[in-house]
């Protein structure tokens, strides 16, 4: 035993290997089974993917660091379920590359904020949170209304998402830029085909209140309004794990 360790230590490379092996075991044992498992992620046949506009909104959510203050993971605790809604299921974030569960609630959980408030409320709130919630400490995001949304690169984004396993079709990728514009301008020609590709329940409206101009605000509000709405699996599953 002792001779063995002395050799390990005298020979630096062997010492290095020892550290790697000892350290890797825990990660491998815990993470590997999550990839073989089927029951980690419940089946949800009606799960839909993010539209290009929602995906762009999600990127803005990440860019502005919203995840630093808002969680998107309702735990299996009674008070959380009563405050925020049915607890989050693994399947709900299966198209989230990366996940945005968060680790801090400076603001409330927003996993189920979709359709809870009007678009106008969100726009006003993002423009200056203290106009609608006087005690809020959330930053004001005025530039979202000023900045035009960049859409020409959206096909590339969808393609990258497909490369990591999200089932975007060729038609979705091809029409990504047009669909992004169309979703927020339902009267325009660009709107044709969006619901065909993403489902009849897709929100088609000028999220920032102005259909002529596609802003970053449109994208972010579109994303907020779909949160928790990609599947109804959580509403349908019996919430048996509370307090477990």
């Amino acid at each position: 035993m002792s001779e063995f360790h002395r050799k390990i230590e005298r020979n630096t490379m062997r010492f290095v290997l020892a550290i790697i092996v000892v350290a890797s075991i825990g990660g491998i044992v815990e993470i590997a089974p999550l990839f073989t498992i089927k029951s980690t992620v419940e089946a949800a046949p009606n799960m839909r993917v993010y539209t290009p506009l929602e995906l762009a909104g999600r990127s803005i959510y990440m860019r502005e660091g919203c995840y630093a203050c808002h969680s998107q993971m309702i735990r299996t605790l009674r008070d959380e379920v009563e405050r925020y809604g049915p607890y989050s299921l693994a399947v709900e974030s299966q198209y989230d590359h990366p996940m945005l569960w968060g680790s801090k609630r400076t603001g409330p959980d927003i996993a189920r904020v979709g359709e809870k408030y009007s678009d106008a409320w969100h726009v006003a709130h993002l423009y200056n949170p203290r106009d609608v919630v006087p005690e809020s400490v959330m930053p004001a995001y005025r530039w979202l209304l000023r900045n035009e949304l960049r859409i020409d690169d959206l096909p590339g984004h969808l393609r990258a998402m497909r490369d990591v396993g999200v089932p975007y079709t060729d038609a979705m990728i091809e029409n990504a830029a047009k669909d992004a514009f169309g979703q927020a301008a339902p009267e325009s020609d660009a709107a044709v085909g969006v619901t065909e590709r993403y489902g009849a329940a897709t929100h088609m409206r000028a999220f920032d209140g102005n259909a002529g101009r596609l802003t970053e605000m449109d994208a972010l509000v579109a994303y907020l309004q779909i949160m928790g709405k990609l599947t109804d699996a959580a509403q349908k599953t019996e919430q048996t794990k509370i307090g477990e």
Binding site: T40, S93, Q94, D96, W101, H157, A160, D163
Partner: peptide
């Protein structure tokens, strides 16, 4: 393009 998409998603990504 600076942007990339994580190879992992959802619960696997959370654990990783």
């Amino acid at each position: 393009d600076f942007k990339s998409y994580s190879a992992f998603s959802g619960v696997q990504d959370a654990m990783t």
